[in-house]
Amino acid sequence: MLSAQSLALIDREVAKYPADQKRSAVMGALRIALEERRSTGETPEARCLNQEVIEFVANYLEIPPVAAYEVATFYNMYDMKPVGKYKITVCTNLPCALSGGVNAAEYISGKLGIAIGETSTDGMYTLLEGECMGACGDAPVLLVNNHSMCSFMTPEAIDKKLAELK
């Protein structure tokens, strides 16, 4: 179900915790599973976590599937719903809003022609609003696919970024 490379990465996570505490690796393992699906999935449905992969991770870590499922649904960054090839999460919390966070989200929404929370019909982009990313000094900030933080996203910087995300 997951590639050998992903399994090796999960093993590295497992090794961080005491031998009888494999469960601690579930957050890392779900992240790695999601990354594999994101990078190989051809459709929004194929890019998010689903029951099958969550169960696979649970079995791999020898924990009950419901334990892994609870974690996948509790933390915001795990995609449990179909998601575009590029998920763009803009921070609109107060500190960012004071330096253009809300304006950035509106600008992207206008450019992509999708509302916040939506995925474009071609399955390319999902636009979300996020909470504080711990980077308020670099506002406006946004995350592309959870792991790539982009700072100082003025309209010009957004234009440039969107041109890269093809």
Partner: peptide, 10 residues
């Protein structure tokens, strides 16, 4: 010492 990565929960 090890690093543990959160995934979005204040």
């Amino acid at each position: 010492l090890y690093a543990h990565h959160g995934y979005g929960a204040y």
